[in-house]
Design a protein around this nucleic acid. Structure first.
Length: 570
DNA sequence: GCCGTTTTCGGCCCGACTGTTTTCAGTCG
């Protein structure tokens, strides 16, 4: 699957064009195409081989040729020509804040700045400051960015960001509750993106300066990037950037809409607004310079003739069209989840007893759960032998007697072996209520075929974390999602949406593919301690980003329906 | 470079902030 590589090279092409001051519209066309390539779940190489590159939105004649050249030869000659006339570390240079393409071109042409360390040098020597249009403050900003670049690391997980956002919101409510009205997260946190760059929080207040002053006094603040009347920006714990904006009542809805994004979504929405004779900004929606809305987000959608679009869908993936036709899906919600059917206990590598996990599940109001501890070949995770699994089944029977308000299912996270077989016999699997089949080794060997083989087993209900990625440190398997999804729909096997913040696997666009194909999903936490059951919200958020409805998700169903659905039932 | 329920040519989202200027360019979101 080379979609990521193709997308990256188109982004780089756009950067280079920007450096060489080509038309902004042309640059934008490259970026749109880069994004579109990433959005399709089909392998770009097979699309190309079928001669269907033109079906990708934003890919016309010119880009088709470039993508084809990249896929067949591994380079784009026109890009290479540009690169010859560009700084060696152009892409690193452009990633520095306040050092955009124009400044980079100036520094390259006048001072021969080719690398980040060249830039360090001309900043320190004062040479940069001598260039036309440059001054003390500009150079100082660049110097700060260089410094920050060394400590801050790009994007971090929604699993870390959301609790921080909630913490900041609680802090503001506590310290300045009397000065604020509404308060909301915005940006990628509100959209439940899998990773975020910074945390945006909007506050409705008439006392912007005071509220923002409060934020800068938070004990976790390690650096104040700015603090004014309408905007404050701080770094928490040397890592997380939090931007707070103080908004007046009459603009709050427009601001929440605007700062929630995504950028691509906003662009589309504004295009539509323009066509309908409106103009929208973060201050409101205007008709002939008269403000016709702004306090409430919903009004903007109403004026444009759209159903309100849930934040998780705002990615310019067809949701505006759907909202126009009143065909938005009714997305699955966290309260729809009736049970978590992939969790671990001290039987394998969980940190808490079954008893503790059950108590936590009851607190969440679940009506059923399944223990799916690791199976015998997963030695490193203290996987269960048949003998120990039988013992666990027995204990679960007793626990069911003890807890009449929740049904505890005996399951296993059974291993998909190198040849596609499972590491428990059918005879053993038959004794269980539920089975999740996963791959934990042999990441590079026939993953698609092995997964398909596992789905053909009548005792396998769910494929666990189907692509195996770890967001912070491991690439997904080379797996043919289209093929897996098709087989999942055909065999009646659900695909897991693993809620762990570092997995979120399946990811949003794959979920969308699955839903379209009629495959079922199962949103689980894979919890190894009771506290992690709360992570279900990240799985639900990701499923919503994939347009999943309640009916698509098997663990929103009553237990009876779930049992009926299982292959083993017929 | 892409695209078409106003267009096959002429459009392509919007505004704030900053710093450098004396009317605006660059950067960012």
């Amino acid at each position: 699957m080379k979609n990521k590589q193709v997308s990256d090279i188109l982004e780089k092409f756009a950067d280079v064009l920007e450096f060489h001051a080509e038309s902004a519209f042309k640059i934008n066309a490259y970026r749109r195409a880069a994004r579109a390539v990433l959005e399709i779940s089909e392998d770009i190489e097979s699309v190309w081989k079928k001669d269907q590159l033109s079906t990708i939105p934003g890919v016309g004649k010119g880009l088709q040729g470039k993508i084809a050249q990249y896929l067949s030869k591994g380079y784009i000659s026109q890009l290479d020509d540009y690169l010859k006339k560009s700084p060696k570390e152009l892409f690193d240079l452009l990633s520095i804040q306040h050092f955009g393409p124009k400044t980079a071109a100036l520094a390259f042409n006048e001072l021969g700045v080719e690398t980040v360390s060249d830039l360090h040098e001309v900043v320190d020597s004062g040479k940069l400051e001598t260039l036309p249009g440059m001054g003390k403050k500009k150079v100082e900003n660049i110097r700060k960015s260089l410094e920050l670049r060394e400590q801050a690391s790009g994007r971090f997980s929604i699993g870390m960001a959301l609790p921080i956002a909630h913490h900041v919101i609680e802090y503001i409510k506590e310290k300045a509750g009397d000065k604020i009205d509404r308060i909301s997260p915005a940006g990628s946190v509100r959209r439940f993106c899998e990773t975020v760059h910074d945390i945006d929080i909007l506050v409705e207040t008439e006392h912007g300066r005071e509220v923002i002053d409060q934020i800068t006094k938070m004990p976790e603040v390690t650096r104040i990037l700015g603090a004014g009347e309408t905007k404050g920006s701080v770094i928490l714990k040397e890592r997380f950037q939090v931007d707070i904006r103080a908004i007046k009542n009459e603009s709050f809805g427009a601001a929440v809409q605007y700062f929630t994004g995504s950028k691509e979504f906003n662009v589309r929405l504004r295009e539509l607004a323009r066509k309908k004779g409106y103009k929208i900004s973060e201050y409101g929606i205007f008709q002939n310079d008269t403000k016709v809305g702004g306090s409430r987000e919903e009004v903007i959608y109403e004026k444009l003739g759209l159903a309100w679009i849930p934040p998780e869908m705002r990615e310019d993936r067809g949701e505006i069209q759907a909202a126009r036709e009143n065909k938005l899906p009714e997305l699955v919600q966290i309260d729809d989840i009736r049970g978590d059917i992939h969790m671990h206990s001290t039987y394998s590598d969980g940190r808490e007893s079954m008893h503790a996990m059950i108590e936590a599940a009851r607190k969440r109001g679940y009506s059923y759960i399944a223990f799916c501890d690791h199976s015998q070949t997963t030695q490193y995770a203290n996987g269960l032998s048949e003998e120990r699994l039988l013992k666990q089944i027995e204990e679960i029977e007793q626990l069911n007697g003890k807890y009449p308000d929740i049904t505890i299912l005996a399951g296993s996270e059974v291993e998909i072996l190198m040849d596609g077989s499972l590491d428990f016999s059918d005879k053993m699997l038959k004794k269980l209520d539920f089975a999740v089949a996963s791959i934990h080794s042999g990441f590079k060997s026939n993953v698609t075929e092995r997964t398909i083989a596992a789905m053909q087993n009548k005792y396998v209900d769910v494929i666990g974390h189907p692509t195996g990625r770890l967001i912070s440190r491991r690439q997904p398997f080379e797996i043919d999602i289209e093929a897996v999804v098709k087989e999942a729909a055909r065999t009646g096997t659900a695909l897991e949406v693993n809620s762990h913040w570092d997995r979120l696997d399946l990811k949003d666009i794959h979920i969308r593919t699955a839903v379209k194909a009629g495959a079922k999903l199962c949103i689980n936490t894979d919890a190894h301690e009771s506290e992690s059951l709360g992570q279900i919200m990240f799985g639900v958020g990701t499923a919503r980003r994939g347009w999943a409805q309640k009916s698509d998700v098997i663990n929103t169903w009553p237990l009876e329906k779930l049992r009926q659905w299982q292959k083993r039932a017929h």
